[in-house]
Design a protein around this nucleic acid. Structure first.
Length: 280
DNA sequence: GTTGAGCGTT
């Protein structure tokens, strides 16, 4: 049955949302439905996907009509292996539009037009103007099509930023949230011992004055980095040339300018003048 | 063939 998501959520009133974590990126709502339907009336199955890539984010929401059934599903399906991965089933804590949810049940209607501003902007802050090619969140085998197109269109830097931003933002968000509710005993599943210890001990050592710790880190760093960077830059130049064939005229001017630029610069002078006593 | 912390859509 793939009648979900034909036009958004069916009816989120008096439903019990379960959050299904750790599902495979290929797992679809159709895959999950029969599994969950065995334990009760499933009203909706939703797998959030990345807006840009259309890929699954690795978790899903299953809405039950009755609480006891949802609870049963949690008990029976939590830890079950699906598609080779152990899924985690638990009651959802937040609603789609940040409506209040208690034990997975929607107890308060979502705000009219104000999305949870204070909750967590997460990562997709900018509204996507292009209308997504998808219309249903179920079973999109042909998503590779627009996925590739999307990647082509996007520039390298943005793609890079995306990955970095994604983890960064999430990490930050997660940390903030976990700190806010750190009183909960459930947090024991989160381990963060090693790093914290290391950081603590190190910070202890140099807690006196971090700036003082290195007499002259700036003079030492550039000294060592300078040759490396230069050689790197040189070897990188052709690469960057081939990487950005947008301005062929620039590559011609490049060597000339480099030759000219190699005239003694203050940095070079400083370098040759720098004492090597510190390096040893 | 593909990553792996986490809370959601027309």
């Amino acid at each position: 049955m793939s009648h979900f998501g034909r036009s958004g959520p069916p009816d989120i009133s008096d439903t019990y949302s379960l959050l299904v974590l750790n599902i495979t990126f290929r797992t679809t709502a159709d895959d999950l439905y029969p599994l969950f339907a065995k334990y009760g009336k499933v009203v909706d199955v939703f797998i959030p996907r990345d807006r840009r890539t259309g890929d699954s984010r690795g978790f899903a929401f299953v809405r039950y009509k009755y609480k006891d059934e949802a609870h049963k599903a949690v008990e029976r399906l939590d830890g079950r292996e699906v598609d080779g991965r152990e899924i985690t089933v638990q009651f959802a804590k937040y609603g789609p539009n940040a409506e209040k949810i208690s034990k997975g049940r929607v107890v308060e209607p979502p705000p009219r037009s104000r999305r949870s501003r204070s909750r967590s902007p997460r990562r997709s802050r900018s509204p996507y103007r292009r209308r997504s090619p998808r219309r249903s969140y179920i079973n999109f085998r042909s998503r590779d099509d627009y996925r590739e197109r999307d990647y082509r269109k996007r520039s390298r830097s943005r793609s890079n930023e995306r990955g970095r931003d994604r983890h960064h933002d999430k990490d930050r968000d997660y940390r903030r949230r976990s700190r806010s509710r750190s009183a909960s005993p459930d947090d024991k599943r989160r381990v963060r011992g090693r790093y914290d210890d290391e950081r603590r001990s190190r910070s202890c050592s140099l807690s006196a004055s971090p700036a003082r710790r290195s007499p002259s880190p700036r003079s030492a760093s550039p000294l060592k980095a300078s040759p490396e960077r230069r050689s790197k830059e040189r070897s990188l130049t052709p690469a960057s040339r081939s990487r950005s064939p947008r301005s062929p005229s620039l590559e011609k001017a490049s060597p000339e300018r480099k030759s000219n630029d190699r005239s003694p610069s203050p940095r070079d002078t400083a370098r040759s003048q720098s004492p090597n006593a510190e390096v040893g």
